[in-house]
């Protein structure tokens, strides 16, 4: 497979940040009360992700290793500020409903994770596609969750009433916080079933390593991780 397409496939399905890597759970659970909110959050994150991957990849040889985290944060924070101003100007209602979660994109672990594990080690073009794939994966995840929550909790899809209120009683718990957990759990379960089916067919989707940084020495999960990389950077078989 073409290496750019491979990046897109990786972000959308194989290492989908929402359903496989379980990254960025805070916006995933908090803003998906409707499909349009999920879509808006996903797309704004995608924009930031693509541009941050581009910039960080372009500057990867100039950024000193010791201060790479502050450098990444500065890049990401500037981009988020731009996105926030644009949204306030052109989509004020969406900006209001997403509220504090737009500025919080700065600390979204998908963005820092991709910067650290991919963009800082790879050329510009693959990094852009990596950001695009991950961002779209995130968008699909959030929109799907938002879709189900909106449908069950209000009988609507993207704001249009599809289930008539004359016979449908909205299950309001789904637009509230507990509904996010229930829907996310169900979708992850579906994803796991698909993964098992693909494994059984002999076309494995590759188990998630859960490895974000690729740097075992500096990783917080190092103590409990079972998939530690050896010196030659190949994953040990478990």
């Amino acid at each position: 497979m073409n290496k750019y397409l491979e990046r897109l496939y990786n972000g959308l399905i194989k290492e989908n940040p929402t359903f496989v890597l379980m990254l960025g759970m805070c916006p995933t659970l908090a803003v998906t009360s409707s499909a349009i909110n999920g879509l808006g959050m996903g797309l704004s994150t995608t924009v930031v992700l693509v541009f941050s991957n581009l910039l960080i990849s372009a500057f990867r040889k100039v950024i000193p290793d010791g201060v790479r985290m502050p450098a990444f944060i500065v890049v990401v924070a500037s981009l988020v500020t731009v996105v926030q101003f644009i949204m306030q100007a052109y989509t004020p209602s969406l900006s209001d409903s997403l509220g504090v979660y737009i500025p919080l994109i700065v600390v979204n672990c998908i963005i820092l994770g991709r910067a650290e594990s991919y963009a800082s080690k790879n050329p510009v073009l693959p990094s852009i596609f990596d950001g695009l794939g991950m961002g779209l994966g995130f968008t699909v995840g959030l929109t799907l969750i938002g879709l189900f929550r909106e449908l069950l909790g209000a009988g609507q899809i993207f704001g249009f009433q599809v289930l008539s209120l004359s016979w449908f009683t909205p299950i309001t718990i789904f637009v509230m916080a507990p509904g996010a957990f229930l829907v996310l759990a169900c979708l992850v379960a579906v994803m796991n079933i698909v993964r098992k089916k693909m494994d059984a067919k002999g076309k494995p989707l590759a188990a998630p390593t859960g490895c974000i940084t690729g740097d075992c020495a500096g990783c917080g999960m190092s103590a409990t991780c079972t998939g530690k990389r050896t010196a030659d950077h190949t994953v040990k078989t478990e």
Binding site: T169, T172, I173, F174, M176, P178
Partner: peptide, 10 residues
């Protein structure tokens, strides 16, 4: 409690 939150009116 699930029903209480889901169908508060009923």
């Amino acid at each position: 409690c699930f029903l209480l939150i889901a169908f508060a009116a009923n």
